[in-house]
Design a protein around this nucleic acid. Structure first.
Lengths: 137, 137
DNA sequence: CATAATTACTACACAAAAGTAGTATTTATT
DNA sequence: AATAAATACTACTTTTGTGTAGTAATTATG
């Protein structure tokens, strides 16, 4: 597995929102559009709001919206908000410390791919993704 | 998360065995050396044997050993035996089908890294790893 | 002011992964 | 033949991630 289910949801929600020409989105609406379990989704979005990926507005006619620029929200930030980037920064074999000085069996192999991947996650923002071809959320 | 805990164990066990100048290894010995829960380990190793990564020898003085060449056992094979390479081949956002024709939001971003990573997993064998610097198993 | 529609919170239920325990089976040693 | 040491199998327990349910708090609308 690469991303947890919850992170999948988070990315789908945020990229979807970014792709629509709307300001405010209710959890109910997103639930219907993306078919993500409603209650689980509300908790996730509240969480994303707490981590600064979104702003939430309570009460009737409330919902969620971006207040940050889309170009300031990277995939790495989203992942960090949900499962944490440690999933990727940490040693792939689970050792507490792992470095070129004291490497695990996969250190060398994973080193390069990891650096590339993390760089991509850090450099790719919702704004970038908005310019890609995406046919499903 | 990249690899499941069980896959971590599998890689640690096999790379460790490959690094030692021994023919036969008991689960008990590996448990002591690598500090992996004994019962869980025996099940895993039996499983690895069933998938052809190892051969098992029952009875007193029994144990596990390689019968294939180390250069024939790739990381991809090990992962396939435990969690399955689908973890990596499948769409990173969990869609059943995902292609350049019908891409998810991360398709483009993950495409290149994924290809690289999988190629590395397929091309790197226990024999290769044996030639790397590894200080911990 | 009452109601309705929304987010926020809390507790529980379910499922999958990880770990534990006990027994059966096999085979070398005595 | 009996014992000991190993793998093989099966069932159970624990932990974690995912999903469900109900209620509280907030705020626009009538």
């Amino acid at each position: 597995m690469i991303l947890t289910k919850t992170t999948e949801y988070a990315v789908r929600v945020l990229t979807f929102m970014a792709s629509q020409n709307e300001d405010l989105f209710s959890a109910k609406y997103i639930h219907k559009q993306l078919n993500i379990p409603y209650k689980y989704l509300t908790r996730l979005m509240t969480d994303l709001a707490k981590h600064g990926c979104l702003s939430s507005i309570r009460g009737r006619q409330g919902g969620f919206k971006f207040t940050k620029k889309l170009s300031d929200i990277s995939l790495a930030k989203i992942i960090e908000a949900v499962e944490g980037m440690d999933s990727f920064n940490a040693c792939i074999l689970g050792f507490d410390e792992c470095s070129s000085d004291n490497p695990c069996a996969m250190h060398y192999v994973w080193e390069k791919n990891k650096a590339e991947f993390i760089k991509t996650l850090e450099n790719t923002t919702l704004d970038d993704i908005n310019h890609f071809k995406v046919t499903r959320f």
